[in-house]
Design a protein around this nucleic acid. Structure first.
Lengths: 226, 226
DNA sequence: AAGCGATCCTGACGCCCCGTCACGATTTGA
DNA sequence: TCAAATCGTGACGGGGCGTCAGGATCGCTT
């Protein structure tokens, strides 16, 4: 069989726009079918990729595993992404996009370094723990998940953290420090500690956050005592 | 052409064992030719892999690129390693193996947390900078180099760091802290800061080490002022 | 409504890389 | 010197990759 069979997935978008276009039927299709299938397909591929990466592991997964799971033909994949790597990046980008508002909120309400750091780290740890739960990533023991590349949203998160630091340090009239190193170090600590945190049972976001925050704030001597 | 052509590489091992076996000729071949070609081939593949990874980048490199560069037939590769990934691991393992004595020296001469941390971090940063220089890894801008897996030597390094911390903390009668988190965080900081350090010109190992050490020792307030 | 151009989904195809294996050259030990 | 063990060799089958011509569907114009 060939040609288009309308096997695109779901139609999950909000119904709220019915209100804005009262003349349209209940199955209103505002942006035109073409546009909608495009969005749906792109999303279907992303969802399929999440599942496949979770089940097979990143390395073992093939483009065809993903596209088959999405219920599309192999050629269609390349209308949306150039490679498995690009899908992975899109997934990471998506995560960063969803995390960014939380981070931005922390930046905005930040009044000093300590509160900002604690807020941001806690937000991140909770976010990561939730993500992990939602689509349970059962990495097959020792599975190599590539380091997230510098996608636009990830770069934006990095910049947001940096800006947050700049803001609170200015508020406190703190002496200038190497902001780049500081941002790098804090993100490194957050990433690795959150990784370890997820491997422990039960997952203790508060404890991990305490550790990370205190280390960065006061160094070794400020660490939580056991 | 088929069969063995004795195209194995060099013959670099030390001449010192001539002394131990006076009856042998100058071109003494102690452990038997078979054993020697085996060692030479394994090393040739490793060296070729370093070059190829450096030139093509890890992702683009193929097993055949490596084995061709080593001057061997494709099938021979699989007598030594199972895959490109395994070669990479061997390379990482080799790095860890060469770094470990330096680290152990720091552990042994350590008398307090501060001196140990400073010694270990400095040793690591210098080591990394030297490696980078020697076989210049010109990662093609944004090239993804996979995170090193937990090879035996890498695990050993991790353990060594942990032991070092345990030792100096005990010497100082310091209150117990979460050693696992502490080790993880310190290694994370060292890794990421050293990465950033290598991207800056000129490469300033001392400055980077100062930053990392002070952050971990005293937190934000102890950071070097600019 | 009917036709037409644009869009894009489809699956087959050729390419390249992978890992294996039968073969034979070489080494080892007897 | 010879037989057995070792292991380098390159051809081969398998499979994933990315492309592309063909055709179905959409959206717009008349």
């Amino acid at each position: 069989m060939t040609g288009r069979q309308d096997r695109f997935v779901h139609e999950s978008r909000c119904m709220s726009n019915i209100a804005y276009f009262p003349k349209a039927s209940a199955l209103d299709q505002r942006p035109g079918k073409r546009e909608r299938t495009k969005v749906a397909n792109r999303q279907a591929i992303l969802d399929a990729a999440r599942e496949v990466f979770g089940e097979l592991g990143y390395d073992a997964a093939t483009v065809r595993d993903i596209i088959r799971r999405a219920g599309l033909a192999s050629g269609t994949f390349y209308n949306y992404y150039k490679s498995k790597e690009e899908v992975f990046d899109a997934l990471a980008d998506d995560g960063a996009r969803r995390f960014r508002p939380l981070l931005r909120a922390e930046v905005e309400k930040a009044v000093d370094f300590q509160s900002f750091l604690r807020g941001a780290i806690t937000a991140y740890f909770v976010f990561v723990a939730t993500e992990q739960e939602n689509w349970r990533l059962n990495r097959p023991a020792g599975e190599q998940i590539p380091h997230a590349r510098a996608t636009p949203e990830i770069v934006a998160v990095f910049a947001e953290v940096r800006d947050g630091f700049a803001k609170v340090l200015a508020l406190e009239h703190a002496p200038a420090v190497d902001l780049d190193y500081l941002t790098t170090a804090c993100i490194a600590v957050a990433r690795e500690i959150s990784d370890k945190m997820l491997q422990r049972r039960p997952v203790d976001t508060a404890g991990a956050a305490d550790f990370a925050v205190n280390l960065i704030l006061g160094g070794l001597s400020a660490l939580p005592k056991l």
